[in-house]
């Protein structure tokens, strides 16, 4: 349902994506791994139009992604995003964060949006935090609210941009388990992550990106357990055995 074909993107003179071709099928979980600065996040940001791309084509369910066109709004309501730094609205409660999109973008009736918002907060284990403002929540709780906010748009896919990288280590698990449940329920997910355990257990496919190109891709277990390319091998060795 998400197609990228020969996508190029430069920031000034630096070309960060040098021809990315990939696709994500419905209900598929794809993890993108690779060193920092390799262009992983940029791919996600191009898919839902937070960044424009210079060449190639990205489409979501056949609709071309073009962030200068009004159609981008429709695409964004179908492809939600979860950020590394949560980006919750600090002036609104957890519940208000979740219902903001349904209420003001999708114009759902208030009662209905609130009922579904509460159900979503319960789904991510935060039923009792509905009236709490984000700054009073832990990082893990904030990220789970952010996931509920993304789900509230009833998206066809969710993009996760390093969702656990800003969390204290003991809070990573609660977020990953919510994501695992989503994957089990058949949500289409593209996850930029450094959590190799999650990638191995949950992802259907893994893309290893370095220097703006896909160096290696394939079934999660085969890429992570028997990487073929020396750069993948080197990266995984450094991530899994840093000492």
């Amino acid at each position: 349902m998400i197609e990228l074909s020969d996508v190029h993107k430069s920031f000034g003179k630096v070309e960060v994506l040098k021809g990315i071709t990939a696709s994500v099928a419905k209900s598929e979980v794809v993890c993108i791994i690779g060193p920092s600065g390799s262009g992983k996040s940029t791919i996600l940001r191009c898919i839902n139009g937070l960044e424009s791309y210079d060449r190639g084509e990205i489409s979501v369910e056949g609709a071309r992604v073009d962030n200068n066109d009004r159609s981008i709004v429709a695409i964004r309501t179908q492809v939600s995003m979860v950020f590394q730094r949560f980006n919750l609205f600090p002036h609104r409660t957890a519940l208000e964060n979740v219902i903001e999109g349904p209420l003001y973008v999708k114009k759902e009736p208030r009662e209905q949006a609130i009922a579904r918002g509460r159900a979503l907060l319960a789904q991510v284990g935060l039923a009792d935090k509905a009236e709490v403002h984000p700054p009073k929540l832990s990082g893990g709780q904030q990220q789970r609210v952010a996931i509920a906010r993304a789900l509230a748009m009833q998206p066809k896919a969710i993009l996760f941009d390093e969702p656990t990288s800003a969390l204290d280590p003991e809070l990573v698990g609660e977020v990953l388990s919510v994501m695992r449940k989503l994957a089990d329920d058949g949500m289409t997910m593209v996850v930029v992550t450094h959590e190799m355990g999650f990638a191995r257990d949950v992802a259907d496919r893994v893309l290893f990106i370095d220097g703006g190109v896909i160096v290696e891709q394939g079934a999660a277990k085969s890429v992570l357990n028997q990487p073929q390319h020396p750069r993948t091998q080197d990266f995984l060795r450094r991530v899994l055995h840093p000492l």
């Binding site: 429709a74 964004r76 309501t77 980006n87 973008v105």
Partner: peptide
């Protein structure tokens, strides 16, 4: 924070709605 604006955009908010609500 720019992240606030991006979060608003990813739930489909346009410029004016982002200004007014976020």
């Amino acid at each position: 924070d720019k992240g606030q604006i991006e979060a608003a955009q990813t739930i489909g908010m346009g410029w004016w709605l982002t200004m007014r609500r976020v």
